Amino acid sequence: MTNAIIIGGGSGMGFALARNLLAEGMDVTIVGRSASRLAAARAELEPAERGEISTFEADLAREEDVAELFAQVERVDHVAVTAADASGVYGRTADVATAIARSVVDTKLLGAWLIGKHAAGKVTGSITFTSGINAYRPNGSNTIMAAANGALASLAYGLAIELAPMRVNVISPGWVDTPIWSQLGMDKQAAFAELAERLPVRRVGTPDDIAQAFLSLMRNGFITGTVVHVDGGHRIT
């Protein structure tokens, strides 16, 4: 048995969440597409933690992978989804390849729907998806990602009713210093410095900031059908 499944747990926010849960003595399964990344994450997490870590290779956009993942599970307390792929997504709509747009929707939205489909009856506590600030503050260069992220809220509302009493929520991070920035071909440090000056908290987020929000939703049994914004005040600036 595993206490938590983290889809996208090989790096960034998911990795930070796995580290926190393991430190509390929970058994965690991290799921991702890259066997090498999963192995590296496991090697880093395993020696120092109290809980047991396991891995499962799966692509969230492939129904057979999601079905196989949950076929291995009799019961699990919590599922967290932090998987994301921003390769080729950013730019004007006219310049973004249709195949890339479909891939974003397949992973972010339909992948989340597949989790709801195949996790039904197996999750005793909660499912938490990851949206993003661009759903609420699109900037003209991330439209398809903004649309997919925004749709996660409606999906969570529906699943929270359909799968009750299991709880379904969404975390919406702002800018967080994670490896996904390496996919965007931009000067990360300059962009972070500029944004930090505008944010009320005067800094960008860390993976642990987001992990703490996930933990709050997992622990609070009276929160469901909710989007929790962890964005440093980005939406109001």
Rank of each mutant, 00 (worst) to 15 (best):
S36W: 00
G91L: 08
E52I: 01
H118K: 04
S182I: 00
I100M: 03
P47D: 12
I7F: 06
A84K: 01
R75G: 04
L163S: 09
D77I: 00
V170T: 05
R42T: 11
I30F: 04
N142S: 14
P179H: 06
A97G: 05
L199D: 10
A146H: 01
A190G: 08
S126L: 08
E46K: 02
L17K: 02
A190N: 03
D85N: 15
D85Y: 05
A39I: 07
A193K: 12
L217P: 00
F15W: 01
M166D: 08
I30Y: 05
A148G: 10
D27S: 14
R92E: 15
A211Y: 02
E64C: 07
M166A: 13
V176G: 07
I180Y: 04
L215E: 03
L21K: 06
I127Y: 01
A67D: 08
S87Y: 00
D95N: 10
M186R: 15
I53F: 02
E162T: 09
N220H: 11
M26V: 00
N139T: 13
E194Q: 14
S36R: 06
N134C: 09
G121D: 06
R202E: 11
A39C: 05
P200N: 09
P165T: 12
V105Q: 06
V79A: 05
M13L: 13
M186D: 11
A23S: 14
R198A: 11
L199R: 06
N149R: 06
A120L: 05
S87G: 09
I6A: 02
A120S: 13
A99C: 03
G9C: 06
G8C: 09
A156S: 11
L163C: 11
S87I: 13
W181R: 07
I6S: 05
T2N: 12
T82C: 11
E44T: 13
I115M: 10
G174R: 01
A67P: 00
Q212H: 11
P207M: 11
A213D: 01
M145W: 00
V201E: 10
T107D: 02
E162M: 05
D59Q: 09
K122S: 13
L217A: 04
T124Q: 13
N149F: 00
R203T: 09
T143M: 11
G14Q: 06
T128E: 02
A148T: 02
S34C: 09
G150S: 10
D187W: 09
M186G: 04
D95E: 14
V66Y: 05
N134W: 01
L69P: 03
A80F: 13
N3F: 00
A211D: 00
K117V: 10
A147I: 06
I6E: 05
F192S: 01
G116Q: 03
I161R: 12
E24D: 15
T98V: 15
L38R: 02
T128H: 07
L152T: 01
I5C: 07
G174Y: 02
